[in-house]
């Protein structure tokens, strides 16, 4: 079933891609094959694959049980929020905030999670930013202090 739904979505997306790509023609062309041929070819083949996926009779997809699936969804949202706040809050704060719930998901106690979050945030900041010269965001509010 999962494959069929995925195949359907994929088919719609490749058709949309072909529709968008149809107008990719340069004003002046110097070559027999322009910028539109390759993506259209790939999308057409993708559409064929999507149809083949929809026709597959057996499915070997095993989804995790719903409670685990909910936690996986939550983990995804946490990482997404981490990505959003990485620059704004600065590496140390964002990492500490991300670590606490993620560590809890993987069986850490509250104490371990908080300590781990602070440790990872500060430790990795020192390691990457100061030792390895990989610039990390300090966050606006810390800019004055850490420079």
């Amino acid at each position: 079933m999962s494959e069929r739904i995925f195949g359907g979505v994929l088919l719609l997306m490749s058709l949309a891609g072909i529709w968008i790509g149809w107008d990719l023609r340069p004003p002046v062309s110097y070559e027999p094959v322009g910028p539109r041929a390759f993506p259209l070819l790939v999308l057409a083949l993708l559409g064929v694959c999507a149809v083949m996926l929809m026709r597959e009779k057996t499915s070997d997809t095993v989804w995790a049980p719903p409670p685990v699936l909910r936690r996986i969804g939550a983990l995804f949202l946490i990482v997404l929020a981490y990505a959003l706040l990485f620059d704004k809050l600065g590496f140390i704060v964002a990492t500490a905030l991300m670590t606490i719930p993620v560590a809890r998901f993987f069986g850490g106690s509250w104490k371990q999670s908080v300590a781990g979050g602070l440790g990872l945030g500060v430790g990795m900041f020192i390691f990457f930013d100061r030792l390895l010269d990989v610039a990390l965001p300090t966050g606006l509010w810390l800019n004055g202090i850490l420079g």
Partner: peptide, 22 residues
Amino acid sequence: WLLVPGVAAISLVGVYAVHGTT
């Protein structure tokens, strides 16, 4: 519980290091 957030943080550090954009 320590490894997974660590990997998440290192991964984003790597992506951020290239262009520095959210």
